[in-house]
Each structure stands twice: as structure tokens, then as C-alpha cells.
Amino acid sequence: MEIELEVIQSMLVKFKSERKWTLQAILQLSEEDITWSPNQESNSIANLVAHIRGCVHSRIETIFYDIADSRDRDKEFEHELKMSIEEAYNLTKESFDIIIQYLEYLSFNPNLLLSQPFINRPPLTFSQVNNETTVLNLMIAMVREIHYHTGQIIYAAKTRKGELVWQYD
């Protein structure tokens, strides 16, 4: 297998695993758990879910679906952000599905890994990458970003529930 396909497949495995564990954690929570945060400076699970969805929108949907970036990042971090369990579950699933769909597309077009999809677009905002970034760099940044926030979600879920029940299938 060529290195490009190995990288893409590794990312696919990672994101599918993250989706599974994050969705399982969310389903074990109450709506109060979703909006809880330990203090005014910390994010709730609702904030983290909204932020993940915003990242996926501005970094992947703008490329894959050529959708203009309409992200409202400040809203993602509003301390009183409300979200139902169903909304949190659906936004999380949708975010991961978009990432996975894009990686599956890349698996058939591995030559795109070194392309620069933002080069002729408006400047990226609130991003760890710039307009000259490659798809490979963007996806590596997404692995880090999503893993970081799903870890926060699972930690917050464990803080609220104690022990979580996992389905290993």
C-alpha cells in the first residue's frame, strides 16, 4: 500500500473509533449533563459538540461541498448554550460522518493530499492552519483537534456519570 493510502486509512480508523466512543458517551447523559460545565471558564459538552461541528463546517464542508463558511465561532462557546441529547448526538454523528465521507473520497483520490484547497479562498479564521495548507496538514490538524475535544467530552461525561458503559462490538 502506498503511504498516502496508509495515512488516509489510519485517519479513517481513528475517526470511526472516536465517533463510536463519543456517541456512546453522549447517549448515557441527561440534558443537564450536556449543558453542565465545572466553572465559568470551562466548556460544556454542548459547547464542545457545537465547536466540533463548526470546525468540520469551516474546514471540510467548505472544501468538499464548496459551502461558504458561515461559522459563528463565538456562539459555539456561549456559556449558556442549550442542546438536547438528540441534538448533541445528531450534531456529533453528522460531524464525524462528514469527516469520514471526506476521507473515503480521499482514499479514491490520494493525490489530493498535497493539494492546497484554501489557496484561492478568503483567509481562514480561528484556525491552526493557513490558506497555504495542504489537505494532509489540514487532516492531521483535524485528527488533533477532534481527538482533543472528544477526550474532553468523555472526561466530562465520566465526571458527571462516574462509570460509563461501553459497547465493544
Results as ranks from 00 to 15, higher is better:
P38I: 10
N39K: 06
E41N: 15
E41Y: 07
S42W: 01
S42K: 09
S44C: 03
A46D: 05
N47D: 12
L48V: 06
L48F: 04
A50D: 09
A50E: 10
I52K: 00
I52T: 00
G54D: 08
C55M: 08
S58R: 13
S58C: 10
I60P: 00
T62P: 01
F64T: 04
D69N: 13
R71C: 05
R73L: 05
D74M: 08
E76R: 02
H79R: 12
E80I: 13
K82T: 02
S84G: 07
E87F: 01
A88I: 01
N90C: 06
N90E: 15
L91I: 09
T92G: 08
F96N: 02
D97S: 07
I98A: 05
L103M: 06
Y105F: 15
Y105N: 10
F108H: 15
N109P: 01
L114N: 13
L114V: 10
Q116R: 14
P117D: 02
F118K: 01
I119E: 02
R121F: 13
P122A: 04
P123L: 11
T125D: 04
S127E: 05
S127I: 01
Q128G: 14
Q128I: 01
V129R: 07
N130K: 08
T133I: 10
T134N: 03
T134I: 03
V135R: 10
V135S: 05
L136I: 09
N137C: 09
L138R: 00
